[in-house]
Design a binder for these strands. Structure first.
Lengths: 103, 103
DNA sequence: TAAGTATATTATTATAATATAATATGAAAA
DNA sequence: TTTTCATATTATATTATAATAATATACTTA
């Protein structure tokens, strides 16, 4: 009984760690904005720049960060680099956020 | 047409700011853990300490931070201080996170 | 191959978050 | 009233994040 409770606390701890890391990657106004636009589908860096504002450098750095955290993947086609959301869970999260906070 | 688009981008920007602030307040393993336990109902600081681990000081500071961000409210009754989630949106968010990432 | 365009990287500085230890408050019990 | 217990506050050192400017890469087109 006791050990089961304490196991699930340990497990909960692990899950909180990994979910908090994801939230941390999202919890910046511009990164959230980027994700919101990407939730509608793949976009190039230039398009995102136009939609989200901010300097070229910061956009690129934010995208890189989210890629490192496995929220995004990118693909170079010709002169452009296209980013998209990697994991359907992230897409679900963005939609949940929208549902909860934007209506 | 154009002005409407740009209005909604401005609005989106505002929303991203405020949602990102909430996410930022949540995006730490221990703060998320605290919130998860509080999602089940009001708890005293001591109970949370037992459930979440960490030093007394850090727990108290994290709770204060989340209170400042209006995620929590507290009430002193006798010797104990009880915290609970202030806003049903936050409760919804915690449940969504659980649904998306913990099954 | 030279020039232009899109994106990435690096360096730097400023600011913010974290962990920790030490101390303070304030209610309750002895 | 002194002591104890629960919680809060303050101070501080360390580390992480953010913003910005400058430069680099690498693909494409002239």
């Amino acid at each position: 009984m006791k050990s089961q409770e304490s196991n699930s606390l340990v497990e909960m701890n692990e899950q909180c760690k990994s979910v908090a890391a994801i939230l941390k990657a999202i919890s910046h106004p511009q990164r959230l904005m980027l994700l919101c636009h990407l939730a509608e589908g793949e976009k190039s860096v230039g398009e995102l720049e136009g939609l989200c504002g901010g300097s070229q450098s910061s956009i690129s750095q934010f995208l890189k960060l989210m890629k490192l955290e496995n929220l995004l993947v990118s693909e170079k086609r010709g002169l452009y680099v296209y980013y998209r959301i990697h994991d359907s869970k992230i897409k679900k999260l963005v939609f949940s956020l929208h549902k909860i906070f934007c209506r």
